[in-house]
Nucleic acid binder design. Sequence first.
RNA 1: CGGGGCGUAGCGCAGCCCGGUAGCGCGCCUGCUUUGGGAGCAGGAUGUCGGAGGUUCAAAUCCUCUCGCCCCGACCA
Length: 572
Amino acid sequence: MKMSQLLIPTLRDDPGEAETVSHRLMLRAGLIRKVAAGIYTYLPLGLRVIRKIEQIIREEMNRAGAQELLMPIASPAELWKETARWDYYGKELLRFKDRHERDFCLGPTHEEVITDLFRREVRSYRQLPLNFYQIQTKFRDEIRPRFGLMRGREFIMKDAYSFDLDEAGAKVSYQNMYDAYTRIFTRCGLTFRPVEADTGLIGGDVSHEFMVLAETGEATVVYSTEGSYAANLERAEACPPTEADTSALLPLTAVETPQRRTVEEVTAFLRVSSRQLVKTLLYRSGTESVAVLIRGDHEVNEVKLARLLQVTDVTLADPDTVQRLTGCPPGFAGPIGLQQVRILADRAVEGIKNVVVGANKADTHYQNANVGRDFSVEQFADLRNVQAGDPSSRGPGVLTLAKGIEVGQVFLLGTKYSQKMNATILDEQGKERLAIMGCYGIGVGRTAAAAIEQHHDDKGIIWPFPIAPFHVHLLTVSQSEKTTETAARLYPELENAGFEVLWDDRPDRAGVKFNDADLIGIPFQVVIGDKGLADGIVEIKIRKGGLKSRIAPHDLVDHLKTLRLEHDPSVR
RNA sequence: CGGGGCGUAGCGCAGCCCGGUAGCGCGCCUGCUUUGGGAGCAGGAUGUCGGAGGUUCAAAUCCUCUCGCCCCGACCA
């Protein structure tokens, strides 16, 4: 295509609204424009990238035996009420009424709609397994959309749903999708890592997230230095302490700790290690309050706590609630004499002796408090975030933390939706059985953003070949007839050889074209100008690495074909 | 939801404190020259100064309300 005829509004200055690399470059390279917070138009160049990623997804989903369909964006409240997610989903679900005052929402995900389809249309186990997918616009009214396509409110998602007769079959379907995702992200040129994940609002039993490792990632990934264990921090299991504290129990003593509230202040004041302090945090979930005991150098993992309590979320109690439950202001809560609430504790608290705890009295702590002797704990559980250097809970090695962008997630749902919506099928004995489901999502725009996060330099984007908007950026750097004629001859030759070519035929100066080309990041740049033609050559620059070579025009196509073998895995 | 910041030409910004009727750079349009890493000269167009209300002879500027956007946080006692 000719650049003079495409809307590619590149920007010379960084737009003020963008901070992260991918957001900035997507705006500067003319891929997207914002319409409202978290809502974007995909410009021609951006859409080509999106379509490339979608195509890879389609090919791999089809190869995995999934079938494509397309569900509506708007869905009626009735379906969501069947699963109770009409209430559960909260403000993220964008609701509206039609002209008859009937409730609708914009689909943030499509378990309800697909399960409804399934229960109406599928009767027999003979039709299973089934896997449906769509690539479609989703809407989630996020609390804080940010970073361009990374966390939008409206975004393109590939979602797939599998239906099996039994657990074993569902596991095969799950693994099948796991493998397809691995192929998809590999083909997109991403460095990623599948990690064990929490299931959140979608629900279910088993889940993995596909994380692209990048500093700007919003998720924290935990992985073992030597073993294969990897998990989202929300999920990562902490090992119980291995060494038991064998110290003799010392007598409990109350000490004054005026104005010392935080772990730092109290431990500094009492000159003890933060490992010798046990903090008492009060949490609320719905109507219930619980106290959580955690070692001073650890952090509570609220996802783990919520799962233990079997609720969707927990929040730290506000100061008034703390005052009411403990009789003291925040900073001095402790387990000794604490009434009215259940006391839960992280496993790391179980074996330590002679600890510092709050005294439930302003400006006072206890020293040498001991579990069993001075207070009791209803249940010990894994309730903390793992830390770098902790031993891996499975396999060898210690844990390392890194930031990651979640580009895909797979869930084994079990019967969560089929049960609520009564999606049954007849088995060999003619008995009705609930379908076992799985669901599988990929953020298409986020995948593009993640690719930029991983592949860029200070000049601009460096697209991996398979998802680049074009393969070859043809730059004519003179306006002479000779140059134009050469380009006009090479352009169709390249296209006939299977290259997608963007020809910068604009009457701008060379510098402008070079800078735009580097910004846009098409893998191969071909420079045609009078200087080169006088020597009988055109120039090739590989965007990644910047390697330049000079080549006779009639050898260009063959040479690029050879280069493509190196850069495009799909032609290997 | 809480905190902070920002809304002035397509983009990046100045002007605001101290009121006097809007400016700079880039981009855009015309012409000439130039033409291999963001050209030069000359001429030109473009703003309801986010919106509403108020104060004033006079408001981008002061006051009140409101909308939008960006960033951080959402309580670790």
